[in-house]
Computed example of a mutant assay.
Amino acid sequence: MDEKLGIAGSGAIACGLAAAAARHGQVVLWARSPDSARRAQAAVAKACGKISGEVNAAHVSVETDLDALGTATAVIEAVVEDPVAKAGLWGGLAGVVADEALLASTTSSLSVQALGAASGAPERFVGLHVFNPVPKMQLVELAFPVEATERTRQRAQDLCAALGKTAVAVPDIPGFVVNRLLFPYLFSAVTLQEESGLSAEAIDTCMQLGAGHPMGPLALLDFVGLDVAQAIGEAIGAPVPATLTALVEQGALGRKTGRGFYDYD
């Protein structure tokens, strides 16, 4: 891989991306706190262990000093899907990242144009939407601000190819392509459950065995995270079902909290 990758974030997407990149070279991952760094180190090691072939988790250096990203030639922000949080981080990165570094965000629904402006260098910016679990999922949606140069576009394509991913350039619209089409369908499953009283298992089994889906819609919502699903729905203008909103208010966010449409405890 020609780029030296730096990742700002320590959640599932950030750790999965670090593990996927570790087979191709050294990666620096920034975590906000020592506790976050310890969790990230464990998550990266676990993700590396699930990748076919030998992937050395030691290739990922987890740091708590933002300056550690200063030597990266490509910096990918992968923090919570909140425009204020992302813009704030880009403000902090402005004095850290190298002048020629490729800048990217893993946003799944926010305006790439606005994030590019927050970075201070929209000509070098790309929305690089990877899918969870990152080591297994092949697609990357690429969206660019209008200022992005042809060199930026080519570097983004080359980075995805080096990671073994298939990149598709998509318009900078809320939800891009996949989420814009996917989440109205997922929400329709919740609405069907509300109207019919069917169990989550019944709905998911129908879609798995009848439509050939690898995962049912309600299980998929739990996997994504119901708070994330709610944020995406609001961003793309898809009505969020009352049941999903109620679960989020209860702190039942899906697999990561042990309860959502299913009980994982």
Rank of each mutant, 00 (worst) to 15 (best):
D2E: 02
K4I: 02
I7F: 09
I7A: 05
G16K: 04
A19N: 01
V28H: 02
W30H: 07
P34V: 01
D35Q: 13
A40T: 07
A43W: 02
V44H: 02
A47I: 01
K50T: 14
S52E: 12
G53M: 09
A57E: 04
A57Q: 04
L66P: 02
D67N: 14
V75F: 04
E81A: 08
D82K: 07
V84W: 13
V84C: 06
W90L: 07
G92T: 11
A101G: 07
L102G: 02
S111I: 06
G116N: 04
A117C: 08
A118Q: 01
G120C: 09
P122E: 12
E123P: 10
P133I: 06
E141V: 11
A143M: 14
P145C: 01
P145E: 05
E147Y: 14
T149M: 07
T152I: 11
Q157K: 07
Q157N: 14
D158A: 15
C160D: 08
A161H: 04
L163V: 11
K165H: 15
T166S: 15
V168I: 13
A169M: 14
V170S: 13
D172K: 08
G175E: 05
F176Q: 00
L182C: 08
L186K: 06
A189L: 01
V190P: 03
L192E: 00
Q193G: 00
Q193H: 00
E194D: 15
E195N: 13
S199R: 15
I203K: 12
D204F: 09
M207P: 12
G210P: 09
H213S: 11
L218D: 13
A219D: 13
D222P: 09
V224K: 11
A231L: 01
G237F: 09
A238Y: 04
A238C: 13
A242M: 10
L244C: 11
T245H: 00
L247Q: 14
Q250S: 14
L253C: 03
R255H: 05
R255A: 04
G258A: 06
G260L: 04
Y264P: 05
